[in-house]
Design a binder for these strands. Structure first.
Length: 685
DNA sequence: TCAGTGTGTCATGCT
DNA sequence: ATAGCATGACACACT
């Protein structure tokens, strides 16, 4: 397996590529800074060289050509080494009669190879070139440790080649990942690579590789911190990180652009990508076109990228609906596919990555970029499946999730699992098609069996129909531990939720088992689980509308998934509203009951007060009656006789004087006052 | 078996 | 126009 190893240095966003070219049985380790070949228009020559000399300690800035141009490989040379005198190589090239003036040693070597016309000739020339150009192009900074495991060196030329060490490290881990040449290509590669002088900077390579790994670890830590937050909280951080990467790529030329160059003329490279079709501004293109040498980059290029790093970069394109991002997807298979290969420590325990690469060597050579993409997604699917299968996943348990009756009237899903149309819908599920059936759970049932329920060989086949949609499925499933902290903390009523569901890859067997056996999942949670909705129900419901909409637009979701997510959100909102409404109604009822109690108490108090008043009034009446009789008992008329209280009454005047008045006069006077009062009332009305 | 209660959901109106 | 909220009504499960 060959390597394409880009990284973006901190200083200037430079892209270094280690390209191990497989050239008709010959292998050339061309390790150079590609910006030398593809100049970013935004960078000036001085910036390039300055940035490289600053960020790549293996290089030192040498004399700069006054003739202009934007830099040449021979202007950068390993520290401690003087740039190789161009003379010898150039003389050899010119001696071959090739009308081509190489600008780099790579050009020169290619001219050698092309002109030689066969492996032996090129081999010999390579040896000559290596002998004459010790520390030449191949002696770049990290080529030794990052180069292809299939590469090697000529023990005759360099017994202590770092490539040999690298091969010893990586070859046992992925023996079939190498693409041995049919004619003992491994040894030939060794010869070629060592001839290119890879052994010269082994120590510096290790230092740089270790520094790069530390940097990668630091980035992973940062990403894990982000993953601990809900997505909408970490969204800004993630976007800023992606933006950072984008900016970094903007300052250099992008890998995407390079990929597009590789795939720009597929008709010319039916079996691969012809380097000759790449419109490189450098003269490599010229030299190769003359001989129609096709270099299969799909097998020659690999990439040493941390798996998490690669995947975390993917949401910008892979899992988003952004059509622009989609168009850039063909570059990603290289990243993902090769990242899996070049990071054996990140593969799942017990899974032999080579088992996912059953293609024989000759087929590997003929892989196109799309093949690699499909193969990559197959691998990805299978790894996901294997990750479940290898950890005790029981598909029967999942199937039981859907066997429970669900008579809720919410969405009248048909639970006819035996319908033959369901079987047909398997592929529809995988390809994200909605289909006419509204039987989400039935579909989901099969989808879950196929996609999640253990290792199902057919599932990957079914999901090959559309890997772009499938990538959203499986990718999201695999990335939940990165993007989301699916912790349910909404309400006590949502205690049935299972936050662990989306975090399988990193969760314990106990948690997974609890999830699988948890039949108390709500209907929406089961649906979301079955359709691989990459968000928790709680998140869907609680997420702010802006984040929700941006989430729907950013992730590549099928219409069915989007519809379900919106339904889940609507029902969830309404459920909460209903709960609040009932709670509010209950509060109102309780308040009314309190009011009733208070009013009843007040009523009793008023009753008691009235009774007391009546009692006091009676006492006063009794006292008045007694006083009345006492007064009349003492009254005497003019003749000295007692006054009859039935014929006379006492009248109090305003001045406090008391008169004894006959009752007849009092009665007539009261009638007149009453008539006056009535008249006043009538006038008012 | 029936009534009461709690809950989810839908429809509808309002903001 | 859309989303969210409030609420009545209904169905269902449970006690």
């Amino acid at each position: 397996m060959k390597y394409l190893k880009p990284w973006w240095s901190d200083g200037g966003g430079l892209l270094h590529l280690t390209i191990l070219l497989s050239l008709a049985g010959l292998h050339l380790d061309v390790e150079l800074d590609l910006y030398l070949l593809l100049p970013p228009p935004t960078l000036l020559r001085d910036e390039l060289l300055f940035a490289d000399s600053q960020t790549n300690p293996a290089y030192a800035l040498s004399s700069f050509p006054a003739s202009g141009g934007w830099g040449r490989a021979d202007h950068l040379h390993p520290k401690g080494r003087e740039p190789e005198p161009e003379g010898q190589l150039l003389r050899e090239v010119r001696a071959l009669g090739v009308p081509f003036i190489p600008r780099t040693r790579v050009d020169a070597w290619l001219v050698h190879s092309v002109a030689a016309g066969d492996a032996d000739g090129a081999h010999g020339l390579l040896g000559a070139a290596a002998a004459s150009s010790a520390g030449g192009v191949g002696a770049s900074a990290d080529g030794g440790s990052q180069a292809a495991p299939g590469g090697g060196g000529d023990p005759r030329a360099s017994p202590s080649s770092p490539l040999a060490a690298g091969e010893e490290e990586k070859a046992p881990a992925e023996p079939t990942a190498q693409v041995p040449d049919a004619s003992g290509g491994a040894s030939e590669e060794n010869e070629v690579l060592r001839a290119m002088g890879h052994s010269s900077l082994h120590e510096e390579n290790e230092q740089r590789v270790s520094a790069q790994k530390e940097k990668s670890l630091q980035e992973n830590e940062d990403e894990n911190k982000i993953a601990d937050k809900p997505e909408w909280e970490a969204e800004k951080t993630t976007e800023s990180r992606n933006e950072r990467h984008l900016n970094a790529t903007d300052t250099s030329f992008s890998l995407e652009a390079f990929s597009q160059l590789l795939s720009s003329q597929p008709e010319n490279s039916p079996e691969g990508i012809s380097l000759g079709d790449i419109p490189l501004p450098g003269s490599i293109n010229d030299g190769i076109n003359s001989a129609h040498y096709n270099i299969n980059f799909s097998q020659a290029i690999s990439h040493d990228v941390n798996l998490h790093e690669a995947m975390l970069l993917c949401p910008d394109s892979t899992f988003r609906r952004d059509p622009i991002a989609r168009t850039s997807q063909p570059q990603e298979p290289f990243l993902q596919f090769n990242s899996l290969n070049t990071n054996p420590e990140q593969t799942l325990p017990g899974t032999n990555l080579t088992g996912f690469l059953p293609l024989p060597d000759h087929q590997m050579r003929n892989l196109t970029s799309q093949d690699l993409y499909d193969l990559d997604m197959n691998i990805f699917d299978e790894i996901n499946l294997m990750s479940l299968a290898t950890e005790g996943f029981d598909p029967m348990e999942v199937s039981h999730l859907f066997e429970e009756p669900d008579s809720d009237s919410g969405l009248s899903f048909n639970s006819n699992h035996d319908s033959p149309s369901i079987t047909k819908s398997n592929s529809s599920v995988c390809e994200g098609a909605i289909g006419s059936s509204s039987d989400v759970e039935s579909l989901s049932h099969h989808a879950l069996e196929g996609a999640v329920g253990g290792y199902c060989p057919e599932s990957s086949k079914l999901c090959q129909v559309d890997h772009r949609s499938g990538s959203g499925f499986h990718g999201d499933l695999a990335f939940q531990h990165i993007f989301h902290n699916h912790t349910y903390h909404l309400q006590p009523s949502t205690s049935e939720s299972t936050p662990e569901y989306f975090s399988w890859p990193g969760k314990s067997q106990k948690v997974k088992s609890r999830y699988l056996n948890d039949t108390s999942l709500s209907r929406d949670e089961r649906r979301a689980k079955a359709l691989h909705i990459p968000f928790s129900v709680d998140e869907i419901v609680r997420m702010p509308v802006d984040s929700f909409n941006s989430m729907l637009s950013r992730y590549y979701l099928t219409d069915l998934q989007v519809s379900l997510i919106r339904d889940i959100r609507r029902r969830g909102k309404n459920k909460v509203a209903a709960q609040n409404c009932r709670k509010r109604k209950l509060d109102i009822i309780l308040n009314l009951e309190d009011d009733v109690c208070n009013l009843q108490a007040e009523k009793e108090t008023l009753k008691r007060e009235r009774a007391q008043c009546n009692k006091a009034i009676n006492i006063m009446k009794q006292k008045l009656h007694d006083l009345y009789h006492d007064i009349f008992s003492r009254l005497r008329d003019e003749e000295g006789r007692p006054v009859n209280p039935n014929q006379y009454t006492l009248q109090c005047s305003h001045d406090g004087s008391v008169w004894v008045v006959p009752k007849e006069l009092v009665t007539s006077g009261h009638k007149k006052e009453n008539q006056k009062a009535k008249r006043k009332g009538e006038r008012r009305n």
